[in-house]
Simulated scan of single mutants.
Amino acid sequence: MRGTAAILIVLILLSCSWLPASGEASYSIGTISGEDSSRFVAQNSNLQEMEFEDMQFAIRSLRDGEVDFVIGPHHLLTDSEMIAQWNTITVGEMFDISDYFIAMIRSDNSQDSGNEELRYAVNSALADIHQRGTAISTHQLWFSDRPQLDFYDFEEYEDAWPTPTEGGTLHRILFEDGDIGVCMLNQDSSMTRFGASGELVGFEVDMAEMIANSIASHYEVELTLYSHNSGVFENVLSDLTESDLCDIAMASVTPDQVPGGFTSSSPYHVGGTVILSSTESPGIDSAAELFDSDQPKDDESDFDLRIVAILLLSVFILREAARKD
């Protein structure tokens, strides 16, 4: 009789040991249609995706507790004006850094020289901007987080300003035209968008202005920024090569988009995927807890220890029951 009871107790203990596995935390993640964030949810069975037509619907559902978190592109979800409208929403970490935005410049050739000098001047200007800290303050004007760019990338360009060669692009900009043309794209985000007066405004516009001012200051010239909306990326390429509209392009271009015949500056901005939470969201230590499928979970290690403890206890119960019988 005691043996039968002991066996029943052991079976109950073993069945209870599986409860942590079935009771692991499950989170609902809001994503935005067309923004390629679903892949982060698909790799983890404990996450449930809710896709929304646009950003406003997603954030409203986050505010109301209908989803636990929202993930999406940095340039959309960290817009400082938008976040300011939702006082219960918090911008979390950028857990997937995937985009390094660069200025695109024509390569030198037999008919078009001085572009490499221009590239060095842009990089030296970026080094100057970051050294003075104005890049951080400009970032925080447009985005509700801190920049992720590694400023050490600019060390080699500090005080490395090129000497403009007469007849080259940089020399023409400085001493003939007195302006620098920058191709851009309206992205309806903090990167670039149309302002109240119909002009382009945004982080990239401000960065281009600071680059122009830094170059002008170093060479002691007057330099005016001319920003041109190319409309689509294909027009950016043609505007850089087939017209006198642009000398460089700052249109959220990443290195993999730079075709032959063009070169690029050092990155001036880092983008990727960020996570938003609200006062209704469950507490987590970091986004890696949700999306890093290779990271060992505390629940898993606790579960293994409990199994061992229960097995040892079961052996003890069975042995004692057999001894008493």
Rank of each mutant, 00 (worst) to 15 (best):
D79N: 15
S80R: 11
I307Y: 03
Y120W: 08
V201R: 12
L170N: 00
S107L: 11
S38W: 11
P255R: 14
I136P: 00
G133R: 04
F40L: 07
E166L: 06
T31R: 10
F291Q: 08
H74Q: 09
Y100P: 00
S281Q: 03
S17R: 06
E155D: 12
S214W: 03
L200M: 10
I97P: 04
E24K: 10
E220D: 15
M82I: 10
R146Q: 11
L77Y: 02
S301C: 01
A42I: 12
A125Q: 09
I97Y: 13
Y219W: 10
D179P: 00
I173P: 07
E24S: 06
N87C: 01
M191H: 15
E176L: 04
Q48H: 12
L170M: 05
T163P: 00
Q187L: 15
N109L: 02
A321H: 08
F69I: 07
S110W: 01
G72A: 09
F101N: 15
D244K: 06
S238R: 13
N186L: 13
C16N: 10
H139P: 08
V253T: 13
D68E: 10
D145W: 00
A58T: 15
H228Y: 13
S189G: 05
Q43S: 01
G168W: 08
V41H: 03
D285W: 08
W161L: 14
L290V: 02
H75E: 07
R132V: 02
I180D: 04
S45M: 14
G231H: 04
D112H: 14
R146T: 08
I307M: 08
I102S: 01
I284M: 05
A212S: 14
G34Y: 03
V201A: 08
D99K: 11
F203C: 06
L8I: 12
L76Q: 09
E204I: 02
D325C: 06
L225S: 03
G178R: 00
S38D: 14
S124C: 02
T263S: 15
Q257F: 11
F40G: 01
A58H: 12
Y27C: 13
Y226F: 05
D96V: 01
S265Q: 05
E49D: 13
D79Y: 02
L47V: 10
N87I: 09
E156H: 09
